[in-house]
């Protein structure tokens, strides 16, 4: 990911910044005054009970959800209703979903080159080369000509990661990338993510894989009922949680 870092170097501001962010679904206040800053190269791991607003928060970062109050900056650009701005930001932000969301009517390779050729206007040959390189990295180059439906869950998720990487994003968002996987496939996906983290990718990752969080996380964010309750470095977060809710959550999640 040397490229991404070099490209990011001139911009000394944060990769992502959420300032006093609020969001409502109708009357329901999902996000309450969220403040979060992600530096370039930082790995933020978000955890918290179900329904606490984790997905909603990271989906705001690439405008899959719209926030209603506060400001959100990605790589120095503010997210507004301006379509051009939204598309510009989405180019720089990759996202990996819980349910992979690969395009089932396209082969793996076609899935990978779609974004680069249509959004980044990369020549097809070059896009294929890049795609094959990333497929090597996620260790499934031999599946290039298959359709997603023919792959295992773990393989599909690795394709999904490769698909995001092909866009050469500066920031990667992960929304519970392993929680739809069978246990024996979780590791193969986490390995890819660890490798990515070691290369210096800026990552915001919603996950309950605490082992992963400890290994690669720079910052732990704990959310509950739409609020960021605690934000700490992992050692501190796991050994010495301050908030009662964090303690309760950790005791539940680490007990099994």
């Amino acid at each position: 990911m040397a490229n991404a870092q070099e490209a990011a170097a001139p911009n000394l501001g944060p990769a992502v910044e959420l300032r006093h962010l609020h969001k409502w679904y109708g009357e329901f206040h999902v996000l309450k005054d969220i403040n979060l800053t992600v530096r370039h190269g930082e790995r933020v791991v978000v955890c918290g009970p179900s329904g606490s607003g984790k997905s909603t928060m990271i989906r705001c970062i690439n405008r899959l959800e719209e926030h209603q109050r506060g400001h959100l900056f990605v790589d120095g650009l503010e997210l507004t209703n301006d379509l051009k701005q939204i598309e510009a930001i989405r180019k720089e932000v990759g996202m990996v979903f819980q349910h992979f969301n690969l395009f089932p009517h396209m082969t793996v390779l076609e899935n990978l080159i779609l974004g680069p050729t249509w959004v980044r206007k990369v020549p097809r040959g070059e896009a294929i080369e890049t795609a094959m390189m990333y497929l090597e990295r996620v260790k499934i180059p031999e599946q290039a000509q298959k359709y997603p439906g023919q792959l295992s869950g773990g393989q599909q998720q690795r394709v999904a990661i490769a698909r995001s990487l092909c866009m050469k994003p500066k920031i990667m968002l992960f929304d519970e990338p392993t929680s739809a996987l069978d246990p024996e496939m979780i590791k193969e996906v986490l390995d890819v993510m660890v490798e990515l983290a070691e290369e210096g990718m800026t990552m915001v990752c919603v996950t309950h894989e605490m082992g992963f969080a400890r290994t690669v996380g720079d910052t732990m964010v704990f959310m509950d009922e739409g609020e960021i309750v605690e934000m700490e470095a992992p050692e501190e977060f796991f050994s010495n949680p301050k908030n009662e809710r964090t303690k309760l959550f950790l005791s539940q999640i680490l007990s099994h």
Binding site: R63, L64, R90, V93, F97, V119
Partner: peptide, 13 residues
């Protein structure tokens, strides 16, 4: 499925 729309959006299409 909604995920298809979202994946396309997230990609910047």
């Amino acid at each position: 499925p909604r995920g298809q729309y979202e994946a396309a959006d997230a990609m910047g299409l």
